[in-house]
Structures are given as C-alpha cells and as structure tokens.
Nucleic acid binder design. Structure first.
Length: 802
DNA sequence: AGCACGCCGACT
DNA sequence: GTCGGCGTGCTC
C-alpha cells in the first residue's frame, strides 16, 4: 500500500503529494487525514495523508516508508481534505498552509535537533558534562562554540544528529484511580500493618467507593493522604492507576447577561426563524442575508435557529468578528446552550484552543462560537453556519491562506446541505447586491426588538467649532451632553477612530513629523513606554527633544490618541470616572471582560475606546454616544472607505438607548456633507447602498467587478518598479479585453522595513483564465524575480487595497 | 591545499 | 523550508 502525503514544507516545488510506502503494521489502522512522520530529504517532517494507491509512478527504489503514524483517529475529515484542495485553488495558497489553518496550533509540529549518543567514550569532557547520563539531548542545550566539535563527532559516527518532531502543546492528562472491588479491598485491608495509619484510613475510604474511578488528586485531597500512601496501596492491588485526557478550563468570565431563555419573537424575527428552519429541515443549502438594524434581535434569531438544528441532531457554527472583543454574545450562547457550546478565540492559550477543538472532534459539543478560524470546526453533520456582523473585514485572513470565512462557510454549507446566515445591520455591498440579485435570500428586521426608537443622531461640524475658536477635541454640544449625563448618573461611550489619526510628533518649524527610518510612515507616540513606535516594522526610538530634521526645539505631539482624550476628559470633567479601552489597556488576558463588566456594573461614567467598542456593547444605562472624529477613515485611499465609515458610524450609534432610556448620538466630523456620514444618521442603509453602488459601478469596483491585488516589494526602488511594470505588461497580454489592470503604482506606504512596495490591481467581470494566468505568473516569479530578492504576493478579492 | 561563503537543486 | 553539494575565491 502506498500513501500520498502532503509534507509540512511550505514551498513551491514541494506543494504536491509525495508517495510513501505504508509499513505492514500500519496498513489496517492508517486513514486519510491522519498525521504521519516521514523522511524528507535528510530530515524528518510531519505530513498529512491525503490518499492511498496501490501503484506509484515513482520508481520503487526511491520510495521510503512512513516513519510513524501520529494519529489513530485522523485529525482531518475527508471534507477538510477536499476543502483544502478548494482553498488552494481559490486563494492560490500552498496546500499545506490550507491544511494547517484548519487545525489548532497545538497539532502543528515543532522541530528540534536532537543528538543521540552512540559512543559515549569519544565525547569531550565539556559536552559529556552537559549530556550526563542521558542518551538523547536537544542540540540547543549546547553552547555555540561546541557545535564544530559536535559536527565532527557526528561525521565520525560517535553521535547522530536527527530532527525530532514534538507536538507543540502537550495533551493535558490526569491520573485516575480505578478502585478495586470490595472483596479485593477487604483482602488488602487484612494485610496492612497496624502502624500504617494512613494506609488504613485510605483503604477505609476506598471501601466506601469500591469499583469507582476517581481522579487521584481528588482522592488525596478528600482523604488528606499523600502520593506515597496511594502508591503503597497501588502496589498492594487496592486500585489501578491510569491517565486520562482532561480539558483545561478556560475562564469564560460570564457577564451578567440575559439570554438564558428564549424570548418572544417579533413577527419579522419569527418569519426569519421559520424560513431558515425550513431550509435546515429540508437539508437545503441556502444563504440568507439577515439585515437587521442595530438592536433588532439578530442574536435571538440565531439562537432559535440553532435550537432547531440541535433538535435534528445536527451541529452549528457561529462566527463572530473577534470574539474576545464581544464577550457579551458568547455569554448569551453559553447561557442558552450551556455545556453544548465550545468557544474558540484568540484569547485562549494554545492548550485551551486544542481542548475546545477536541470537544468538537469527539462530538461532545454541538455548537461552536468563535472567530474566523472556527469556520473549520470539525463537525461531521453541520446544520447551520452563522456569520454575525458579516461585513467585518476580520473575516478575511490577511496572510496566506488568504481565505474569507464567508466563502468557506458557504462552501461547507454546500457540502453538508445546510443554510448559511449572514447577519448585519450594515451588510457588505457584495452581500447586499447578491441578495438583490436573488443569490442570497434577504430577510429584513426593520424594527427594534424592544420597540425602542432609534437614537437621535446629531452631526457636529467641527469646522464651525474651529471658526468659533474651540480648539478642543470636544465640541461645545458634546461637552454639554456629557455634563448632562454625568449629572443624571447615566453612561456615555466615546469612540475614537484612531486609524490614520494616532499621535505623532510634529515639528512646528519645518512641519515634518518624525518618520520611521525603515518605512515611509510617521512614528506613533506611545505614552506607556514614552517612546515612538512604527506600526509597520516595529521600530522603536525615544522621543526626540529637538527636531531631527531642522534641529528646532519647537516639536510637539499632534493628533489624538485615547490617552490624550482621557487627559482632556479629566481636565474638563475632573469628577468623571473614565474607563479606557484600547490595545494598551486590553493586552492582558481577560481584560476586555473585566473592563466591560466594570462599565456594566456602573463603576464608570464614561467608556472611551477605539474600534473594539463599536460592536456588541449592550448596556441599559448608556444614553449618550460620542464619535470624536467620524471622517478619519474617509481619508484612506481605499474603495471601501465610505462603506467602512458608514458601517462604523451606524454600529457605534447603535450602542445608545438599546433599552428603556432613550439614546442620543453626537457625531463630530470635518465632512458633515459626506453621504456616508449624513446617511448613518438615520441608519439609512438602502439610500447609502444606492449611492455607493453607483460609485462602485462608475469606478469598476466590487461588487460590479472582481478584483485581485498583486503586491511587489524589493530593497531597490528601480528593481521593484521595473519588475512590476514587466508583470503588468505580461498580464495585459494574457488577460481578456474586458479586464482592466490598474498600475503598477507605488503602494500607499511606499516603503516598509526598507523594502519599496509597488502594486497593481486587476479588475474583471469574467476571467476564467485568471487562476491559470496567475499560476504562470508565479512560475515566472519563481524562476527569475524571486532569485533577485523580489517578493510578490497575490490577494484574490482583497478586503482593502490601501 | 584548506576552508569560508553563496548559489542551486532535490526532497517520494 | 532546509539541507548538502559544488563552485569560487581567499589565506597560509
């Protein structure tokens, strides 16, 4: 028997199956989707078995046998193997990367060079000291200067150096005692000496638990005995001890959140649930776009659909943008479905992620709530896939494999015959257009579940404020409203869109901001470290006292960071209790939940934060939302700038007045007349959609055209410009007449890490040859450009082109 | 001659 | 990606 194996080597020439002999002993147990350790060149690597055959095209003498079978139960299902193949074609990634992204990182291999001692007498004294009595030692334990002598010893055959493969995170195990039957225990009891009080006590306790299986640790705790005592009885046969796999218990940090019980649905909600349920009942693949204004109760729809799916004995996946940012929604699912729910998000340790994954694999849970990669949850009988906030850009992975969770969800739903639900108050234009065309089924929730009115939204023109001499970041009106809420004991959320607007250091004499030495971008001032940082390459330097350009002492901080806003808040409202939520204050594990809980418990008057507070926040006492600078995003040179701005403003506004008290929203902007700002006021999605669609059509952008972005980078500006030019000329000759190629142009940030960046954009409606043409382009890249130090990357359907 | 370094191709 | 093989060129 011959196995086809995809090896854990991410490179072009080996991006295909390799044939291996299956040793006799493995023949009956090896399965597709199992991990194996195989010889590859002169080392050992991990691989995935993707298929079997009887004959190989490779001469038999070149075939080598599989070294070791790592999984008796395959880690990947047949569906996953097919999915990887599909992803490879769709995103032009390596198959191994597609396979790896489906698994928790704990199952990925960690390679380590290990020396095996063959002839101990020939090893020098220093190395021998490190080795001691062991016969296999990790190479990294030796100091660097010993490496030449170890190499020599290896050549002489005194030691051998091999690559060992270790699982990254150990499977957590626990010792359990299988207590013997009463007769056996009685026998053992007889033989215990009078002086052995402890043993006597323990065996008496065991008599009361004869035949049971109990964790050793618990037994020791309950009886107040030590391991020595337990061991003594083990030897006498009173119990047997084994190890079982146990799960780590991640801190779920349940918020005090309603949602335990199903609630009465509005007519619209009930209709949505019944139409989705029908598709689920009939095992029909159908994609629904659930368009519901903020506060319209989309989550309740999801939960009732899931209940239906569970009743059919099937499973469900719920994707949320970045779950650690929205602990509220997880809490609701946990409350409703209890132990049937697994949670997967970036806040968990590798071990915890593995444990959650195992629960799914073993069929112990039926619902997964998680971020992007949870779309690969290894369910075998999927009944529904839900993407909440489907417009969120975090569903697209930014590095290889550049997949979109929405596409994977729909693909899996096709394979399982089940509905997909895309939910949003502000759907992406792509999805809404598909719903219009009838590709997706549109379900609309137009009223808020608790019948609250939408918050009143006021747009504040900051240019007027400037004219009137107000140079503060708070307009007179917003400051007044904050004061009012402080007086009434109600809560305020202040939102600062930091993107492109963070604090930088500016010289007032020459007008330049301090630049990163490696990238064409201004450095950002970080208060916590009192240093300047580059967000692209990580470069860090102390804050200069004089301008590095002109030597002037007139340098000052410019821009608005959350820390600066906090200081100003403190100055304006010394009595206000302010919680700040941004990357700096939420870095610690569980910090999100903690801050949100504090705010929910009324421990603060004002919550000040960035993007991360735009979603999911739902507290009754919030009656004021302030957006400090609505239009910073509009300045991005990206075709989605208006869409993102509209989405963000609508989401943020939706945080106010979700319960009994009415809400009010202030949006501060320098571009009050922009349609994205103007229309977010009434959550007027359809009018916004109409205008934005017209613009997209005019400029040939999605959803009217598909786009593919190709990026080039090189240390030398001329080289990258020339190569990009060559690539575009080559593409132009191969692609159809309706296809438009924009560029090459220098990227928005033209230099990162001392590499110059160029890009070109391909716009097309129908281009069946594209995948093939791009594959050929990659071949040209590999055979010549790559060797000159050029890097090229291709992103099919990028979520951003800036 | 002896070895450091960089490039190239193979990996079943 | 990572390794060894092999060529070049430098030093003793």
């Amino acid at each position: 028997m011959i196995a086809e194996v995809i090896t854990d080597v991410s490179a072009h020439p080996v991006d295909r199956p390799f044939d291996y002999l299956v040793p006799q002993r493995m023949e009956t147990v090896i399965e597709r989707g199992a991990r194996v350790k195989v010889p590859f060149g002169n080392r050992k690597v991990l691989g995935f078995v993707t298929g079997f055959k009887e004959q190989s095209d490779i001469p038999v003498n070149k075939l080598r046998p599989i070294d070791e079978l790592l999984d008796l139960e395959p880690v990947l299902t047949g569906e996953m193997l097919d999915l990887a193949d599909w992803m490879k074609r769709e995103t032009l990634c390596f198959e191994i990367d597609a396979l790896q992204v489906m698994l928790p990182s704990a199952l990925r291999a960690k390679y380590e060079k290990v020396i095996h001692v063959l002839e101990p007498d020939r090893i020098g004294s220093e190395a021998a000291g490190i080795i001691g009595s062991r016969n296999a030692v990790a190479l990294k334990e030796f100091p660097e200067r010993l490496l030449p002598s170890l190499k020599r010893l290896s050549q002489e055959g005194a030691i051998s150096i091999e690559t060992g493969i270790r699982q990254r995170t150990s499977i957590k195990k626990e010792r359990v005692l299988h207590i013997a039957g009463p007769e056996n225990l009685a026998d053992v009891r007889e033989g215990i000496k009078k002086s052995a009080h402890r043993q006597a006590a323990l065996i008496d306790w065991m008599l009361a638990h004869a035949g049971e299986t109990i964790p050793t640790r618990d037994v020791m705790e309950l009886t107040g005995t030590t391991r020595a005592t337990v061991k003594a009885l083990l030897e006498k046969g009173a119990a047997a001890e084994t190890e079982v796999e146990v799960y780590r218990k991640p801190e779920v940090g349940l918020l005090d959140e309603a949602g335990g019980d199903p609630v009465m649905l509005t007519d619209e909600q009930a209709d949505a649930v019944s139409r989705i349920s029908r598709a689920a009942d009939e095992g029909r693949e159908e994609t629904f776009l659930l368009h519901g204004i903020t506060g319209s109760g989309k989550t309740e729809v999801y939960m009732q659909v899931i209940r239906r799916v569970l009743e059919q004995g099937k499973e469900a996946i719920v994707l949320v943008p970045e779950i650690s940012l929205t602990p509220q929604i997880t809490s609701r699912f946990k409350k409703r479905f209890g132990p049937l729910v697994a949670v997967m998000h970036s806040g968990l340790s590798a071990g915890e992620k593995y444990d959650e994954w195992r629960k799914v694999q073993r069929g112990e849970v039926k619902v997964v709530v998680g971020a992007r990669s949870a779309v690969f949850a290894p369910f075998r009988n999927l009944g529904a896939v839900i993407l909440d906030e489907e417009h969120e850009s975090s569903y697209k992975q930014e590095d290889s494999p550049r997949y979109h969770a929405r596409d994977v969800a729909i693909r899996r739903a096709e394979m399982h015959g089940c509905p997909v639900i895309l939910g949003s108050a502000t759907p992406s234009l792509e999805s809404f257009a598909r719903a219009h065309k009838g590709v997706y089924t549109l379900l609309t929730l137009s009223e808020r579940a608790k019948q609250q009115p939408l918050p009143e939204v006021r747009i504040v023109d900051m240019r007027e404020e400037l004219k009137n001499g107000n140079r503060s970041m708070f307009s007179v009106d917003l400051a007044e409203a904050i004061r009012d809420r402080l007086g009434k004991g109600e809560q305020t959320v202040l939102f600062l869109n930091r993107r492109g607007y963070s604090s930088f250091v500016l010289c007032r004499d020459c007008g330049t901001a301090v630049q990163c030495p490696n990238c064409d971008i201004s450095l950002t001032y970080h208060r916590a470290s009192e240093r300047l940082q580059c967000h692209y390459c990580g470069h860090e330097e102390p804050v200069p006292l004089i301008c590095p350009e002109c030597g002037s002492e007139h340098i000052r901080f410019f821009g608005t960071g959350t820390q600066k806003v906090q200081e100003e808040l403190h100055r304006l409202f010394p009595e206000a209790r302010v919680l700040r939520m941004d990357v700096d204050t939420t870095r610690q594990k569980g910090a999100h939940e903690k801050l949100l809980r504090q705010f929910g418990d009324g421990e603060a008057d004002i919550l000040l934060g960035t993007q991360m507070i735009a979603k999911g926040l739902d507290f009754p006492n919030i009656t004021l939302v302030g957006v400090l600078s609505a239009d910073t995003m509009l300045r991005l040179s990206d075709f989605r700038a208006a869409e993102k701005t509209f989405q963000l403003l609508t989401q943020v506004s939706g945080r106010a007045g979700r319960h009994e008290k009415e809400g009010q929203v202030y949006i501060q902007t320098y571009a009050p007349e922009h349609y994205a700002v103007e229309l977010s006021k009434e959550q007027a999605f359809e009018p916004f959609y109409a205008i934005e669609m017209a613009n997209r059509k005019r400029f040939s952008y999605p959803p009217f055209y598909y786009i593919t972005l190709i990026r080039f980078s090189h240390e030398d500006l001329m080289t990258v410009a020339d190569t990009a030019e060559k690539a575009v000329a080559w593409l132009a000759g191969k692609l159809g007449g309706d296809t438009v190629i924009i560029g090459p142009t220098a990227s928005e940030v033209a230099r990162v890490n001392n590499r110059y960046r160029y890009q070109c954009l391909i716009k097309y409606k129908k281009e069946p040859k594209l995948a093939g043409v791009l594959t050929d382009l990659v071949k040209i890249y590999r055979s010549s450009w790559m060797k000159e130090g050029l890097l090229m990357s291709i992103d099919m359907n990028p979520s951003s082109i800036s």
